[in-house]
Structure formats: structure tokens, C-alpha cells
């Protein structure tokens, strides 16, 4: 579903004397339907950076990242913004660590939005949002409020509900279980299992071994592609 070939990435910091920081070179990564691959490597090794590249949030300096979208392979490193937005709308979901929303919009709407954008009837999308919020133990009295007033853990669960509401063929999860209690972590693991069950291709960053061992079918160590790793 996702195929990265010979991918390289460096950052050039023009505001700091134009220093160039090489990050990756020669990354080869394949993600197939029904798989859940853990991206591993110590803190600061670039796991999130790599995930952002897969989502086209970061550009690549070289190589290609192809996504199977609408029955065809699309290279997101060269695709137009319009195509990338289409990929994100219908093919690739991303649960980030941050919730970025317009203030004032109710939680229920925020969670239902990706499904509404796909053309699902509003009431069906709302029902599914209610169901997910219930499973993730967000009290009903909060549903009509903006999540910007919530605690960090609650915001993260809203983010997860939003990320899992549509059945994306490819899913990227950046620390979906960080700062969750045991019960909610179990719910997230169940959601991941259900996504795998319907054939989603998943790449995730998980901070704890238990989560990784519970849901992952394989792992991918990003450190082996760090620039200078094999010198």
C-alpha cells in the first residue's frame, strides 16, 4: 500500500548560518495491507520525521514515496497539493500527537468531520463519532464543547477517535497510546486490531514494548538509515 524507495532527507537551516543537517539516506520501506509495522529507534532518531515524510507533511530531499491510491500508485514526493489532499482525505489517515482545530467547534463535529468529508450522511457520521467517543471514555457532557478546553489525555483520545472514524486503507499512528491509562490503551489496541482486521496497512510509533508486542506484525528500525549510520 505504501512504498518508499531510496528516500533521503536533510534540513537546511537558513536562519542558523545555512547549516545543513542530513537525516536519512537510502531509506527502503514497504507497508502492505493487514500489516502493522512499528517504527523503532531511540528518542531523536527521526521516527516522527520519517512518519511526517510518509504523510507528505515533510518534503523528501531525494527518492520516492508511492501510495496506492484510487487503484494506482501515486508518488507523493512529486504529487500536486491537490492530489496529496485527496490522498489524505480518502487513502491515508494520520493520528498526530497534536490536536489542531478551530476553537469553538464541538468535539462531536471534529470527530465526525473526516467521514462527512468523504460524503457519508451526517447522521451516520455523528453516530459513529458518538460510538467512538463512548468507547474512548470521553464523557457525553463534553461532546458539545471544543476539545481545546480538555486535558492532554482527553485531547489525545479525541484525536484518536477522529483518526479512526474513516476506514482509511493506510494509517499512520504517532504515539497513539502515550499518556493513556490502561483501559484506554486497551481500547486503542482494539481499534488497531479492528483496522488490521479490515486490511488496513498501519505504521506506528509506540513508546512501550507491551503495545508494540500486542499489535505489531513487524518492526522497522529507522536508525539504520541515518546518515553516517554505517560509517
Amino acid at each position: 500500500m505504501l512504498h518508499a524507495q531510496n528516500v533521503g532527507k536533510s534540513f537546511t537551516l537558513h536562519t542558523q548560518g545555512s547549516v545543513t543537517i542530513p537525516v536519512f539516506q537510502g531509506v527502503e520501506f514497504t507497508l502492505s495491507a493487514g500489516e502493522c509495522i512499528a517504527l523503532t529507534g531511540e528518542s531523536g532518531s527521526g521516527k516522527s520525521t520519517f512518519m511526517r515524510m510518509l504523510y507528505a507533511n515533510y518534503t523528501c530531499s531525494e527518492g520516492s514515496i508511492k501510495v496506492f491510491h484510487d487503484g494506482d500508485w501515486l508518488d507523493i514526493t512529486t504529487a500536486s497539493p491537490h492530489s496529496i489532499l485527496e490522498v489524505r482525505k480518502r487513502t491515508m489517515g494520520y493520528v498526530s500527537q497534536f490536536l489542531r482545530v478551530i476553537p469553538r467547534v464541538p468535539t462531536l463535529e471534529i470527530v465526525a468531520e473526516p467521514l462527512v468529508a468523504l460524503g457519508t450522511a451526517r447522521e451516520i457520521a455523528m453516530d459513529k463519532a458518538r460510538d467512538l467517543l463512548t468507547r474512548l471514555r470521553i464523557p457525553e457532557r463534553l461532546w458539545q464543547l471544543s476539545p481545546l478546553t480538555f486535558s492532554g489525555g482527553e485531547q489525545q483520545r479525541v484525536n484518536i477517535a477522529r483518526g479512526f472514524i474513516a476506514d482509511y486503507p493506510v494509517m499512520l499512528l504517532d504515539e497513539p497510546t502515550a499518556s493513556l491509562d490502561a483501559q484506554n490503551r486497551a481500547t486503542v489496541l482494539a481499534l488497531i486490531e479492528e483496522a488490521k482486521g479490515r486490511g488496513a496497512a498501519i505504521a506506528g510509533i509506540f513508546h512501550d514494548h507491551e503495545t508494540r508486542d500486542a499489535v505489531c506484525t513487524g518492526s522497522f528500525d529507522v536508525t539504520s538509515f541515518k546518515v553516517g549510520a554505517n560509517d
Binding site: 537551516l13 537558513h14 536562519t15 515533510y58 496529496i84
Partner: peptide, 20 residues
């Protein structure tokens, strides 16, 4: 380009200055 790409991974010196 794509809004979040320009803001999160700006390439041009001036955009980097603006974002930072």
C-alpha cells in the same frame, strides 16, 4: 505548496524566518 508542508518544513530562508 501544501499549507502544512510550507509551514512545517519551509525551504526558503524567508519562509523559515517567518515561521520561526
Amino acid at each position: 505548496g501544501l499549507t502544512d508542508q510550507v509551514l512545517d518544513d519551509p525551504q526558503h530562508p524567508y519562509t523559515q524566518l517567518l515561521v520561526s
